[in-house]
């Protein structure tokens, strides 16, 4: 009981810090002294390509002009193409949906997940619209996408920490995940053999870490770019970067982490909607087919059985 209370206190404190940090960025954005166009302006010029600079300006220019849009295009086309081939060659896993069900996800779990899901449904397409803004003609349409991209971040920022904490203990990698990786989750065959996985399989765990920790990185780097001219001295001291270099680093990080987020987001949607027929219902009504748990999360099923829960 005592331990539980202190745990809760810790959680609350972490959450509090995160909100404070976000507010801090927002208020600092209106600081009177510009970190970019004021006295720092000349220092920033020297920092562009001189010997002792981090060369982030030329690096960002090179990456953004030659690689970022191309990689995003590769992910947008390549990942769905690979899954389309999987669907045609191997096909989906179908489990009977009328048998006994196991209650897996609480109302809280589902609420948090749904808020994050709705945010992602806006964040991912609008992000792609910004990346391919030149092909879409720019202007008001892309400006709208940019504004929605910022707005949809707010609900995600609210649920990302609860989501991180509620599934943390089920998301650590273990030996099951090695075995899961060896057989690529059993997705390369049609056979229904029990697959080594706990409550979450190795693929879901990867997505968990990218969506939560990666998501927090996306929020912070995105907020830095959104507020742009904020004044946070300790951030410059810790990183050893000037304001403009913090922005350049944020843009690079936002794109690179973005690759992983969108690739795994597409995977997550494919798995829940197409690859395992009806799997999406478990996060809608909280119940999962017993047969499905038995096969796809065999270790978890065993654990439930040992506890006499099924």
């Amino acid at each position: 009981m005592d331990g539980n209370a202190s745990m809760k206190g810790k959680v609350m404190r972490k959450y509090f810090y995160f909100i404070i940090a976000t507010l801090f960025l927002a208020s600092a954005a209106y600081a009177a002294d510009s970190q970019i166009w004021g006295d720092m302006r000349v220092t920033n010029i020297f920092g562009y390509g001189q010997v002792e600079s981090k060369n982030l300006g030329p690096l960002f220019t090179m990456l953004q002009s030659e690689y970022f849009p191309m990689i995003f295009f590769g992910i947008l086309v390549g990942v769905p193409a690979a899954f389309a081939m999987h669907y045609l060659a191997i096909g989906p896993k179908v489990f009977p949906h009328g048998g006994k069900k196991i209650y897996i996800f609480s109302v809280f779990n589902r609420f948090v997940h749904q808020v994050a899901a709705l945010s992602f449904i806006i964040l991912v397409p609008t992000g792609f619209m910004i990346v391919f803004g030149d092909k879409l003609g720019g202007g008001s349409l892309i400006r709208l996408a940019k504004d929605l991209h910022g707005l949809a971040t707010v609900p995600f920022a609210i649920v990302v920490i609860p989501m991180f904490l509620m599934w943390l203990k089920d998301a650590f990698f273990n030996f099951d995940d090695v075995k899961w990786m060896m057989i690529v989750g059993g997705y390369l065959s049609k056979e229904k053999r029990p697959i080594p996985a706990g409550k979450f399989n190795a693929g879901q765990k990867m997505w968990y870490w990218i969506a939560t920790l990666g998501g927090m990185i996306m929020i912070l780097s995105g907020a830095a770019m959104y507020f742009m001219d904020f004044d946070i001295a300790w951030l410059r001291e810790i990183t050893g970067l000037s304001q403009i270099d913090i922005l350049r680093a944020s843009a690079i990080i936002h794109n690179v982490v973005g690759f992983a987020v969108v690739a795994l987001f597409i995977t997550h949607v494919y798995m829940s909607v197409f690859a395992i027929k009806g799997a999406i219902h478990s996060i809608i009504d909280g119940h999962m087919e017993e047969e499905e748990v038995k096969i796809l999360h065999s270790s978890y099923y065993k654990k439930l059985k040992d506890q006499g829960k099924v």
Partner: peptide
């Protein structure tokens, strides 16, 4: 222009 700020990050002169 959508006001994303990328040009500022690329610009050596602010």
């Amino acid at each position: 222009c959508i006001g994303c700020g990328y040009c500022l990050y690329a610009c050596p002169f602010g």
